[in-house]
Design a protein around this nucleic acid. Sequence first.
DNA 1: TTGAAAGCGTTACCAG
DNA 2: CTGGTAACGCTTTCAA
Lengths: 347, 347
Amino acid sequence: MTDPTGHEAVPTPPTSAAVARRAGVSRATVSYVFNGQAAGRVGAGAQARVRAAAEELGYVPHAAARSLRAGRGRIVLLAAPADTAPVFGPLFADFLAGFQSALHRLGYTGVLHGAPADAPLDAARAWAELRPAAVLTLHDPPLDASAVDLLKRAGTAAVLTPGPQAPPGAHALLLDQSEAGRRAGAHLLAAGRRRIGVVLPAEPGLAASADPRLAGVRAAAAGHPDAAVHPLDLALTEESAARLVARWPALGLDAVFAYNDAYAMLLMRALQDAGHAIGTGPGRIAVVGADDLLLARLLRPRLTSVRTEAIAPDRLAHLVDTLVRAPSTPPATHRLGTFRVVPRASG
Amino acid sequence: MTDPTGHEAVPTPPTSAAVARRAGVSRATVSYVFNGQAAGRVGAGAQARVRAAAEELGYVPHAAARSLRAGRGRIVLLAAPADTAPVFGPLFADFLAGFQSALHRLGYTGVLHGAPADAPLDAARAWAELRPAAVLTLHDPPLDASAVDLLKRAGTAAVLTPGPQAPPGAHALLLDQSEAGRRAGAHLLAAGRRRIGVVLPAEPGLAASADPRLAGVRAAAAGHPDAAVHPLDLALTEESAARLVARWPALGLDAVFAYNDAYAMLLMRALQDAGHAIGTGPGRIAVVGADDLLLARLLRPRLTSVRTEAIAPDRLAHLVDTLVRAPSTPPATHRLGTFRVVPRASG
DNA sequence: TTGAAAGCGTTACCAG
DNA sequence: CTGGTAACGCTTTCAA
């Protein structure tokens, strides 16, 4: 009943040879019919017989055999560890779906692969087994030079890693988180705020975007000698927010960039519960979130938020296609999106 | 520079033959070393030489060639269209990542594939080309009998589609959304509510879970002759919420099950802005959300929410593994999770 | 302990 | 216009 590997036998799928036999033609003819090369080579009658035979047998070409023969895979590997979603925000799933179907339209198969962040070389080896046409990693730390080298030697036409700079041979994907910080910082400074807190989420995996955001706020503040920037540790729990708010009087901050709308909501609620006034006026604490969720508009006061203007998924898919078709394109940096402040009543 | 397909040449990846040549052994020996069959067959010296040669050349086995030879693929195909994320809630990305890495641990490669919902048979054909060991679809409408048949004839050991009932030969995956409705309805009825509104999101793709939720509330109300259930159309915009609230006095509802926490927040805010009191007391409107996000705890009043107790991703992965190893297992229904009301102040 | 060879399903090439 | 043949990279049986 079971074979030595513990698998039961599964009926062998029909092959092109079976179709050929049934249609009374050669395997090459079947191949032509299934690849649109039939015009001018295969007679109409033979074509019809081939299609009928395939239909009856339930024949479907075998992708592995095809790409083995072609020497080139059509897989685009998207490497994203479990904690990518928070980094890219709640819109990541939408982006992923759009990217996936855009790839499909271009004839690629998108494969999402979890990444063991601790061993980039092992991960690269696992990916290389699939002989992907392209590899996109979205996580930190980015692939190192040896991992990129391994992939390229395995025939991967394009390797894209998070920027700002990529290892030799890889293209950089830049979603410059420090820009989010710069925009938020500039907005608050323009509103006259000088003592600015920046939330650093305690949740793991978010440091990769939180740190550059903090750096961005600092960069914005560098132009204002009287401005001070304070990192604030905060976990996504009410207890953590309460602890932070308890320290608030001692901190003496007049503004806070809260990493994203969820942290902003948490902190704003805790500040309000403690009797602090939120908003743009004097004596109020300015609060800025990020992601510009519906949430931001529903809070009271309405939440000022840094919005990510992400590249359209199909544009990214087209970029990948271009790079795959011209593997010798010199590595460059490609922006994944930019940031913009949506000002509302909270700050 | 470019070949006829518009692709530049990419350096050919090293093959096991190249490794064998470099190590001065046969290709069979290389294969043994890379598949753990080396013990008692290949001498220690030869093993070391093979590994060294592979390292130097950057050799990685070719998954397509391997599975072509093995006759059995290791791909688990997860078919999820763009609008799956809303159906499964914001936790879908986490679930996906966990499922993916659990599969990886079991030796499978998880592939996420967008589903052209309009042509299930075309989708099935595209999937069948990958000769997946298993196919899981998460979308509505589920695969029909002919699509399942095609996949099985292509050697797919296990096909899983959303329940409650699956086509012949396919297993059913049940996340019984009507249970969410029943739980919410029972909760509200037990609290004495009798005129219950149920939000039907206007956003496309959510009807698949919203309709059974409504049915669940109706089922719960069936035991109470004096109870009435009203469907309420609502889009995720403030304008839509304002329109709904304007009709509220005419509706005369004393409770609402708001589909999820986001819709609940939107509606609750609009009701409050219009002067309605939210909560459990008499004269107040009871509001129940779903998903039990952090959001629910931060709203005031705190939001009662229906929480999904989802199956652990690795349990689903193990289920898939089991079914793949025993393809003749009679089709059955497998629960993806259950629902539970988390009562708070809003209702 | 190692090597030779067959075969997985597909497609490109070249005779017929 | 059609069909045979070889080759893609790998695993595995069999023989040395």
